[in-house]
Design a protein around this nucleic acid. Structure first.
Lengths: 116, 116
DNA sequence: GCAACGTGCAACCAATGGTTGCGCTAGCGC
DNA sequence: GCGCTAGCGCAACCATTGGTTGCACGTTGC
């Protein structure tokens, strides 16, 4: 397996979900269905402006979409895009897992030959 | 499921594997067995010093261990710790996946009731 | 009409990923 | 033994980014 294969992940997507605050925001949006910068900030240990910036990042990554509604702007998760992100997460995990398994098998094989 | 449950990930571990350069370093170390700051820098688009800093981060996160060997310092992956990291990756993915599934089921249920 | 709420923009600060440059020590060739 | 080279560590510096405060502008409700 090539190195490039494991790093075939979309870097923007990964960096979007790499931030702990943004992960919690996605959690909240999934749980509550939607939310605004202000409503999310109330449930997070950061200011509204910080949340707004994060929403901008998530928006540019396509993970959320915001629609203006009067004086507020409601955001909701783009299911398909988040599913893509989850797939990439597990793909990296699977790649490492496979290599760890292979190393383990090799180690066991060596041990067997030494015990002969 | 609580928000805290999904964020039970060790933040240091996550931020360690959150950086794309560090992920590629882990890939290289897994493939080649071990490596030094210089040897890794040759295969990466960054300088030796940048690699050295990343190795420091990975070391503090417990993902790699370096042992001095003459004039060079060889690093190798800590299998157990990387396995832990992989587990946390998939745990976050699984949490989101579950919520997406639930949303999908609810949407389908609504559609069924509307078609009645 | 006006007070209050929600948003967006700008300036600023700290942390971090990256660079260059320098000095030091361990091995190798002679 | 002596010098040269390879590899490392440290320090200074720069750009990006996650965070803050402050302010100005549109929307809503009384």
């Amino acid at each position: 397996m090539s190195v490039a294969a494991a790093e075939s992940v979309d870097d923007d997507l990964w960096s979007a979900i790499g931030d702990p605050t943004r992960r919690r925001m996605l959690d909240l949006l999934l749980i509550e269905g939607d939310g605004t910068a202000t409503s999310l900030a109330q449930r997070l240990p950061v200011t509204r402006q910080a949340v707004a910036k994060h929403l901008g990042v998530l928006d540019r990554a396509g993970l959320v979409r915001g629609t203006p509604a009067g004086r507020e702007k409601r955001y909701r998760v783009d299911d398909a895009q988040l599913a893509r992100a989850v797939a990439q997460l597990s793909s990296v995990g699977a790649a490492w897992d496979a290599r760890l398994q292979r190393i383990k098998r090799i180690a066991e094989a060596i041990q067997r030959t030494q015990q002969d």
